[in-house]
Simulated scan of single mutants.
Amino acid sequence: MKDRNHSGPFFCATISKKENNMEEKNQTIVKKTVKNGITFGTCLAMVISYTTWHSVFWAIIHGLLSWIYVIYFILRY
């Protein structure tokens, strides 16, 4: 007798749905992580800039540079 739990198109379709669902979840997690990382980098750059130079103008400019300014600040100072 054939084992119906591990063969046939229904089982394959179930695996495909699970794999697709996992891929979608992983993509969502990566997108959220990237968005939060960019926001945190911008905020960090602005805080470092403002506390160092006491200028809103430079804080905005450095916030646009984000992680580039943070890395520059770490290496320079």
Rank of each mutant, 00 (worst) to 15 (best):
T51W: 06
I61F: 02
M46L: 06
Q27P: 00
K32S: 02
K31E: 15
C43F: 12
S55K: 09
F73I: 01
K35C: 03
L75A: 07
Y50V: 06
K35R: 15
I38A: 07
H62W: 02
Y72N: 10
T51G: 07
Y69A: 05
T52C: 03
I48Y: 05
T28D: 05
Q27I: 01
I48W: 01
T42R: 00
V47P: 02
W58A: 03
T39F: 08
N36H: 09
I29A: 07
K31A: 14
V70S: 12
A59N: 11
L65W: 12
G41M: 04
S55F: 08
K35H: 10
I48L: 15
G63M: 11
W53Y: 15
S66C: 04
V56C: 04
V47W: 02
I61Q: 01
M46R: 03
I71V: 09
W58F: 14
C43T: 15
C43M: 12
G63R: 00
T28L: 04
N36K: 10
V34Y: 15
V70R: 08
W58S: 09
R76Q: 01
H54I: 03
W67M: 03
V70C: 07
I74L: 11
Y72F: 13
I74D: 11
I60G: 13
I48K: 08
L65S: 04
I48S: 02
K31S: 14
G41A: 08
W53I: 14
S66Y: 01
S49N: 04
A59R: 08
T28N: 11
A59M: 14
I60H: 10
W53D: 14
Y69P: 09
I48V: 11
L75E: 08
T39I: 12
I38G: 06
G41S: 15
R76N: 05
L44N: 04
K32C: 05
I74V: 08
F57N: 03
L44Q: 09
W67K: 02
Y69Q: 10
T28R: 11
R76F: 00
T33F: 13
V30P: 01
M46H: 04
I74M: 14
G63I: 02
I60R: 10
Y72H: 07
W58R: 12
T28Y: 06
H62G: 01
W58Q: 12
T33W: 05
S55Q: 14
H62M: 06
G41P: 03
K35W: 05
T42D: 00
N36W: 11
A59E: 06
S55G: 14
I29W: 09
R76K: 14
I61A: 11
H62N: 15
T51S: 13
A59H: 05
I38M: 06
L75C: 03
Y72V: 11
S55D: 13
V70W: 01
T39K: 10
I74S: 12
W67P: 00
L64Y: 08
F40N: 14
L44G: 08
W53P: 00
L75F: 09
V47M: 00
L75Q: 06
V30Q: 06
V30H: 11
C43Q: 04
G63P: 06
T42S: 05
K32H: 10
T52W: 00
W53K: 15
V34P: 04
R76L: 02
Y69W: 02
L44E: 09
